[in-house]
């Protein structure tokens, strides 16, 4: 057994070292990332918990107000005064089939949502914050490829780009790419971009 494989870091109390541990932010390569302005609305394309994670992390970083709603619709967005829309990608598959997620319905909802966000003049961020575990199947890919081209910038964590996919994809789409070390650091990273 390779010990190094199992033991990466001594554990620590959650929030004590948060500010320090959180972020490694290197904003994108070719294109400048736009400033993030609250209030922020977070939703998901695929019903995975990424949106909740983004919200929790933003709350930790005092980037408020940040609301998350996995079922957010265009009507729910209009006239609420949000400045930024973050859409996390990757699909939830707990209970396949009848209890699973219909990714096509999700994509249709998101397309309407982005249209509304454009009308409201909002910044749209496509995000992938749950690592390679949400880059395994065809549904994950469908949600990523539906959201990212509609976004103004792409926000990911390091683990999501292990194979360099997002680095190449952001270049292909000519979108700024923000890479955060881990999900815990998302809030702090976005606060930096304010």
């Amino acid at each position: 057994m390779k010990e190094a494989f199992f033991v990466r870091r001594k554990n620590g109390r959650i929030f004590a070292g948060l500010a320090l541990a959180a972020v490694f932010l290197f904003a994108a390569v070719a294109v400048q990332a736009a400033p993030i302005e609250p209030p922020i609305a977070v939703t998901t394309c695929g019903q995975s918990p990424g949106a909740v994670m983004v919200k929790m992390s933003c709350a930790q970083a005092k980037l408020m107000p940040t609301d998350s709603d996995n079922k957010l619709t265009a009507d729910g967005l209009r006239g609420k005064g949000y400045k930024t829309l973050i859409i996390t990608t990757g699909t939830s598959m707990k209970g396949m089939g009848a209890a699973g997620t219909d990714v096509n319905k999700e994509i249709a909802r998101i397309e309407e949502l982005v249209k509304a966000a454009r009308e409201e003049g909002m910044l749209v961020v496509g995000a992938h914050v749950e690592g390679m575990a949400r880059r395994t199947d065809a549904s994950d890919e469908a949600s990523i490829k539906a959201v990212m081209p509609l976004s103004d910038m792409i926000l990911i964590i390091e683990d999501s780009d292990k194979d360099g996919f997002f680095t190449a994809y952001s270049k292909e789409l000519n979108k700024p790419l923000v890479v955060v070390k881990d999900a815990l650091g998302i809030g702090a990273a976005l606060a930096e971009l304010k």
């Binding site: 494989f5 199992f6 033991v7 990466r8 870091r9 554990n11 620590g12 070292g17 541990a21 959180a22 019903q47 995975s48 918990p49 909740v52 994670m53 996995n70 939830s92 598959m93 707990k94 749950e130 690592g131 575990a133 949400r134 683990d159 070390k181 881990d182 999900a183 815990l184 650091g185």
Partner: peptide
């Protein structure tokens, strides 16, 4: 995931 596990732990609803 950030502080303890080499292999991340996710979350599902």
């Amino acid at each position: 995931t950030a502080q303890e596990f080499p292999v991340p732990i996710g979350m599902e609803f």
